[in-house]
């Protein structure tokens, strides 16, 4: 019994860690740029696919599997390059447009990137093969916990800590918060918000691509994983509250654990349970647990 609970708990926290990274990127971009970026699911998928490419290359040149986390992180960071391209090439034209238009645009982007992924990597699932268990398995209260899951959990906590430090204690973080609070006023104080938008969007992109890259040893990459992820990220954001980092953290934890519990008890009801919570939140607390926007 205890081992089942521990297994469910760690599996939930593992999913939550990855979800948090993507949701944090989503929240950051929404908080500053006021755009709900559905394409963050695509960044997650791209991170996963490029992660596989990098890991395969790393292993082919004799890299030890236990260091596979390095090419995974590298894949996430390399994909930072798409941030400025999308922000400057597309999003900057729609900041003043209606929110529905913005949603349509980012959804179109998601579908386009999904097709690009199919074009490059095909439609068959891909995986890193063998990396996941190369880190070993830990026995915790009789439950077998893959060490890789723990590494991802720790990595997410470290990234969350770095994010919190940047936002609270650095000039860049304060400028981000000021721009998020009132971008017109930020400009009147000499802040170039175009510059901030590029940086924030790139940061949000990297959080998504790293999330995708880190998760991939535990699963297989599929072209539709972007849409699957956005459905979960949407639940995280609604539950936690749009624009709130604390909300992203709590929302991801709730959705991750709920997903894990339902998977263990009634796998068929996984989405149903999550979306019952989403509907309850939308009806009784539409701003989410920690959100400011409705």
């Amino acid at each position: 019994m205890v081992e089942t609970i521990v297994n469910i708990l760690f599996s939930g926290i593992f999913h939550a860690s990855v979800l948090f990274l993507v949701a944090a990127g989503l929240q950051l971009v929404f908080g500053v740029q006021k755009i709900f970026n559905l394409a963050c699911g695509s960044f997650y998928a791209l991170g996963a696919y490029l992660g596989i490419v990098f890991v395969k290359y790393f292993l082919s040149v004799g890299g030890p599997p236990v260091l596979a986390i390095l090419p995974l992180l590298a894949a996430g960071f390399v994909l930072a390059i798409i941030g400025p391209i999308i922000e400057r090439g597309l999003l900057r034209f729609v900041y003043d447009r209606d929110v529905h238009f913005q949603l349509l645009l980012t959804f179109a982007l998601l579908l386009m990137i999904e097709d690009i992924i199919k074009l490059i990597w095909g439609t068959y699932p891909l995986s890193t093969q063998g990396v996941y268990l190369a880190f070993g398995i830990l026995d915790i209260f009789g439950a077998s916990i893959p060490v890789y899951n723990l590494i991802v959990i720790v990595a997410s906590i470290v990234i969350a800590g770095i994010m919190a430090h940047i936002l609270s204690n650095t000039r860049f973080g304060r400028i981000i918060r000021a721009t998020s609070d009132n971008n017109e006023m930020a400009q009147a104080l000499g802040i170039n918000i175009n510059n901030i938008y590029v940086k924030v969007f790139t940061l949000g992109t990297v959080l998504g691509t790293i999330g995708g890259a880190l998760v991939i040893p535990s699963t297989a990459a599929m072209s539709e994983m972007a849409v699957d992820l956005i459905v979960l990220a949407f639940a995280v954001v609604v539950i936690g509250g749009l624009g709130s980092m604390k909300g992203a953290f709590v929302g991801a934890l709730l959705v991750g654990i709920l997903k894990s519990v339902s998977f263990a008890v009634y796998p068929e009801l996984e989405m149903l349970l999550i979306y019952i919570i989403v509907i309850v939140v939308l009806v009784f607390k539409p701003q989410g647990l920690f959100g400011t926007a409705t």
Binding site: R171, R177, G190
Partner: peptide
């Protein structure tokens, strides 16, 4: 900026 302190509101002007 409501999320920033009085001091942070002032010092931000000196960075740009």
């Amino acid at each position: 900026f409501p999320d920033l302190t009085t001091h942070e509101n002032i010092e931000i002007s000196t960075w740009t």
